[in-house]
Design a protein around this nucleic acid. Structure first.
Lengths: 216, 216, 216, 216
DNA sequence: TATGAATGAGTGTTCATTCAT
DNA sequence: TATGAATGAACACTCATTCAT
């Protein structure tokens, strides 16, 4: 609503226009906290006119999540093509994720935050992509381990911690003050690769704390 | 949790009963997706009767978040008391966080997920506690660095990545199949401490990927 | 709520305290627009405690209206006692009315404005007093006429116009800038007595306007 | 009015239909005592459907008051156009007022009785018109005085007493038994003009009553 | 006398969605 | 393609009133 954006003429472009603005409002107010009227206002399309482009609010959320996710995964697969070194593959995954993140903060927030807002049957479809994405990351981690680059850490915990670091970014990253895509990628890849390679013995770490755990 | 729980007799206990069940529904359906009627049904208290215990839905959310957060922070301060070794202090922070997390998954989800659902003036109050909590973590990280235990990584990014790993847990942790509190703490502390200590040169990592960034 | 007024100790005084404050809130917010909670807040008596003093909101309104009206009428009767000159009797009526009005603006507004808010059987009772009050005024007017002090004006219209002038005062009278009781009484009695005595022929008045009445 | 009235087909007519019936219910039950559900029932429009025509209950009240008032004032200005004799102008004002009154008793009651029910910013707007209407009446009175047709009576009190006589009508006028527009206009204009012209000395009137004022 | 705790019915308003055009 | 008009169901919240203590 801030800067005037004219409603596009052709149908496909208009759907993109709607998805773009809807993602922005969902990001700002949450899915449940957004009304179709809000979307009508923000897009300049009449309330009933919107229903030509999506059949329900659920479907709209699905379109945003699905489009975004497919874009991320397909670009990742293209970028991984022909690259075999585990470390490089991992870095490509992180960089691809964060690049999308910083260039599409609204969509990424909707993807991270509104996972559970989606209902059957859309939910299953999106979580199918999510599972494949996770599986790919897991495969990369496993080959890292096979190369001796990861110590005894639980692989599921390791991979999900990596996603935790990446997906949490939407909660704190401010474009003007925080590192850009490259620096952020370096930092997270650095923490992760050094982190899972180990070095410090786990046992030492855990015993160091034992006095504290007994206090209540 | 769906089994019959009798409504407590005295007033203070009844408020706790309401907070407990409300946290559970908010965790499941989201704050905006939960109606006071849902809460009435779940607690066994009449719709209007609930308003004797909190004056608005916002205040209810505030009560849940505030109570939880204060508990976490105060217990942490008690546990840190008299402990000076940075590594140990960090481990206590992580363990304290994860312990609360796994024992109060509903409250923790409400804390992590419904941060933005809270409005003025409650929001400011809760985010005040959040800032103090983050500042404490940051202090610990700084002393870690002073002891030569952290390389050149951006400290803000490092600390927020640690919170990312921890706070993301609510999205994936299944009590029956996933590691318990101790193992989870070990894994995350391990990744973080080894991760920020560095070792692998950053430059090497970043160049390794450059071919991939040119593909689109 | 503005200045602190302690709740009285004994029962009768406390009822008066409640009636006084209730009249003030009813005057300000209207009867339907006032909740018993508002009254609880303003009087310092607990919500349920109020019901010891009146059995329903309707009864409370009745108590205020009835008390006020009876006071006005009884004082009027006392003041009229032994006075026989029609003009003087009329003046006493107006002065008695306006005196109560300016000294009890809240009660008077509740009396004037909330006439219809009262339901059966209270309504009948209060409107009984009102009818007797009007009948008394009408009697005075009739004797005025018998003395040749009122021209051919419709007596019902005349008397109700007098009440109109008096009862409308609550809509505009500001104690600090508007005339006091005496001046106001003089003005209204003056307009009324001169007004009904006539002089100017009615016919002249009505024809003077005839062109205007035909324009639409 | 309770007989079946079909809902109009076109949108503008339907708004008029809603305003008409709403005025009737507000007149009967008071603004605060009327629920939107009452209006839905009376108009035959669904509860939510009403909100297509007005955005809030306050706005509905505003629409009724504003429409009525503007109609009264504009018609008055048209009728006064080209008329310069103060007495005639006064009579036109009264006749215009009473004509609207008797032909639109519901609207007039809402105007007279629900003045304070309107809140910001609507209130200011309506009271702006009201002030202009009063100012016009005051101007007429002032020229009456300039022509020697009004004695020393306080002009504010005089004009507001005139409005008191007129606006009180809604409290007592019964179309079947009470005088019609013309007679009522004659009576009130007569009382007012003769009343303010004076004749009887004020001093005499006021002293006549002094014994009465000392009795309690 | 007085109140904390409680409630069923109702409040104004918004919701996602539909349908005739 | 697009929309004005409409709706049933639901929303957060308040109401006058009650009752055990």
């Amino acid at each position: 609503m801030s800067t005037f954006v004219p409603t596009p003429r052709n149908s496909e472009a208009k759907l993109q226009h709607i998805l773009l603005h809807s993602a922005a409002i969902f990001a700002k107010q949450g899915f449940a906290g957004t009304s179709i009227r809000d979307i009508s206002r923000a897009t300049g399309v009449s309330l009933s006119g919107l229903y030509y482009y999506f059949e329900s609010k659920q479907k709209l959320l699905y379109l945003i999540q699905n489009t975004s996710f497919i874009f991320i995964v397909e670009r990742l697969q293209r970028r991984l093509d022909g690259v075999y070194q585990p470390e490089t593959r991992l870095r490509i995954l992180v960089q691809n994720h964060i690049e999308y993140f910083l260039s599409h903060p609204n969509e990424m927030k909707v993807l991270s935050h509104e996972e559970e807002a989606l209902e059957s049957p859309y939910r299953e479809e999106v979580s199918g992509i999510k599972r494949r994405y996770y599986a790919l990351a897991r495969t990369i981690f496993d080959s890292l381990k096979a190369d001796g680059l990861a110590s005894g850490v639980n692989p599921r915990v390791a991979v999900l911690s990596l996603f935790g670091m990446m997906n949490w970014i939407y909660k704190w990253h401010k474009p003007k003050v925080d590192p850009n895509e490259e620096e952020l990628t370096n930092a997270i890849v650095g923490i992760f690769l050094n982190g899972v390679r180990g070095g410090m013995e786990e046992s030492a770490l855990s015993t160091a704390v034992s006095p504290a755990t007994t206090d209540d």
